[in-house]
Design a binder for these strands. Structure first.
Length: 207
DNA sequence: CTCACGATTAGA
DNA sequence: CTAATCGTGAGA
């Protein structure tokens, strides 16, 4: 059977500068296969959280707690947390061990397993509008890909969940903006650490 | 132990 | 625009 994805990213990818990784992840495929089946989504929107020097980061000031300690692992691990008591947020830990930086994945474009995604999202609309609703937000993509906090701490360099270079990476223009919904972060709200693929309709709708 | 809060979403 | 909904983490 022909796989709808390419080669898994090596550890080295996740050891680059976090802002480079946030941009570099755009266009890559996130792959998760479990007993229900396989789902694949192209990463189209990310945000960088730069750890101890970033007031918006859960690790601001070097704070380490039970929930956030996976961010201190070596780059390539998964950090998932629950927000508002009901939605999961998927992040990729970056850089060397002890450096609690990460990239938050805000939106995907469904590539494979769309029927399964529709089931998990409870969406019956098979039009383009329905397709966009599957993964155009951080909580939505976690529902579609079946990602929850039990996956926090997993290693993307293993086989349960991983990111790949697609066989043919599309031509795309990357743009940046302020990060979304971090009013608590003061002046850091202005820092342009959100990246997305220009004109991609699966990017989350906030501006 | 208590309790305020959130890197969101769906729906009015 | 707001309600939903609960794990987390700081403080008593």
């Amino acid at each position: 059977m022909e796989k709808p994805y390419g080669c898994k990213l090596p550890r080295k990818f996740y050891l680059q500068d976090t802002l480079e990784i946030a941009r570099g992840l755009l266009g890559k495929y996130l792959v998760h296969e479990n007993a229900q089946g396989m789902t694949v989504g192209k990463i189209v929107e990310t945000e960088a959280y730069l750890g101890k020097d970033d007031p918006a980061s859960h690790a601001f000031g070097g704070k380490k707690t039970e929930r956030t300690e996976v961010q201190f692992k070596v780059g390539g691990h998964v950090y998932v947390y629950l927000i508002y008591g009901m939605y999961n947020c998927f992040n990729i830990v970056t850089e060397k061990e002890g450096e609690p930086k990460s990239v938050f994945v805000r939106a995907l474009e469904p590539i494979a397993g769309q029927d399964l995604m529709r089931d998990r999202r409870g969406i019956t609309d098979e039009s383009v509008d329905g397709l966009v609703e599957l993964t155009n937000g951080p909580g939505k993509l976690c529902m579609a890909m079946d990602i929850d906090t039990s996956m926090s701490g997993k290693d993307l360099c293993e086989d349960e969940i991983f990111v790949t270079y697609p066989k043919d990476e599309d031509h795309m223009k990357i743009v940046s903006s302020e990060r979304i919904n971090i009013d608590y972060a003061g002046e850091a709200k202005r820092w342009p650490w959100r990246f997305f693929i220009k004109d991609n309709s699966f990017v989350s709708s906030s501006e």
